[in-house]
Amino acid sequence: MPSASNAASASAADTLCDERQLRADLAACYRIFAMLGWTELIYNHITVRVPGPERHFLINPFGLHYTEVTAENLVMIDLQGRIVGRSDWPVNPAGFVLHSAIHEAIPEAHCVMHTHTTAGCAVACSAAGLSRDNFYSAQLHDRVAYHDFEGITVHEEEKPRVVRSIGRAQAVILRNHGLLSWGGTIAQAFAYLWTLQRACEIQVAGAALGPTLPIPEAIQVQASADALQFDPRYGGGQDVFDALRRLVDRSHTGRGD
C-alpha cells in the first residue's frame, strides 16, 4: 500500500504533467486566434485554470502579441491577479478581473475567452443584440447572455454583476464591448466563441442586404438541441480544435512551444 507521502508526490507529478499539457494547448489556442484574426494588438485574453485547489490560472503575458505567446512564457496568476512563481512579464488588470470573476464563481469554467472582433463589437453595440435569423445564431437559442457595459473591466465591484449576468450561459455578449465564452475545456469554449463569432459576422454582412428572413423559435430550439459540437459526449469541439491546431503547428514548426 503506497504511503501518504508517495501518494502526494504522485498527485503533484500528475498536476505538473497536466499543467504542461494545458500550457501547450493554451499557447496553441493563442496561435489559432492569431490565424483567425481574433487579435487586438496586445490586448484581450484566453485563460485556462490549472488543476489543483488553489484556483490558479494561466494568462498571456501583457505586452506580447498572440503570435509571441508560448507555453513557457504564459503567466500563472491567482484570483487576485498576483503572479504565482516567476515571470518576466506583467499581466493586464483588465484580463484577470473579468476572467477571475468567472473562474472563481463558475466551477465548470476551466477556460474563458474574450475578443474584440469587429463583427462581435458591432453586434455588442447593437440595441437589438444578436439576431435570430441565421444558421449559427439559431444554434445558440437560450445559450447567450448579455452584460451591460460598465467601462473598462478593472474594478472588483463589477465581478458579481458579471457573474449574475452570465448565469449558466456559455456564450456572452458584453454590451458595447465584445464577445466572451467559457467552457469545461479549451475546445468547448472555442466552439461556443466560434459559433457566436460566425453568427455576428453573418448578421453584420446581412444587414447590408435589407430585411432578413426570421427563423421560427421552434426551429431555433431544435437547431440548438441538434448543435452537438458543444456537448462533451460528442467531443465538445475537440475535433475542430485539433484540426486548427495541426494547421497552426505546420506553420510554426521549430518554435519548440
Rank of each mutant, 00 (worst) to 15 (best):
A71P: 01
F135V: 04
S100Y: 02
E104H: 14
A122Y: 02
Q170W: 00
L140K: 01
M113Y: 01
V162F: 13
H141Y: 13
T118P: 05
A109L: 14
A94K: 07
D148S: 07
N73T: 12
L140D: 00
L58E: 01
V154Q: 13
F57Q: 05
Q170L: 07
E158S: 03
I59L: 10
L64Q: 06
C121A: 11
A169H: 04
E68G: 14
L64P: 02
H65D: 09
P93D: 05
S137R: 03
W89P: 02
E72I: 06
A71R: 11
R55A: 14
P107N: 12
I106Q: 08
P160I: 04
P61C: 07
V75F: 04
D142L: 02
V163P: 00
I83M: 12
L58P: 02
R82E: 15
V144Q: 00
A94P: 08
P107A: 12
L98V: 07
R132T: 05
R168S: 10
F135D: 02
E156I: 13
V69D: 12
E108R: 15
Q170V: 05
D148F: 06
C121L: 05
V163S: 09
H103K: 07
H116A: 15
E68A: 15
L79T: 14
A119D: 05
R143D: 02
V91E: 01
F149G: 09
R143S: 02
F57M: 09
C121W: 01
A105L: 04
T118W: 04
F96D: 01
V50L: 14
H65N: 15
L58S: 02
A171L: 03
N73H: 07
A122H: 04
G129H: 09
I77D: 04
E104G: 12
T67F: 05
L74K: 07
L64I: 07
K159M: 10
A169W: 00
I59W: 09
H99V: 07
C125I: 11
G167C: 10
F96T: 10
W89H: 15
A171P: 00
E150Y: 04
A124E: 01
V154I: 15
S100M: 05
E54C: 07
R82A: 13
A169Y: 01
A169S: 15
V172L: 04
L79K: 09
H114P: 14
P107I: 06
G85S: 12
I106N: 03
N134D: 09
D78N: 15
T67E: 14
P90I: 07
R164F: 08
A171Q: 01
G120C: 03
L74A: 11
H103E: 14
C121Q: 10
I77W: 07
T153E: 03
E150A: 13
C121D: 06
L64E: 03
V97T: 11
F149Q: 11
E108W: 01
V154K: 08
A109C: 13
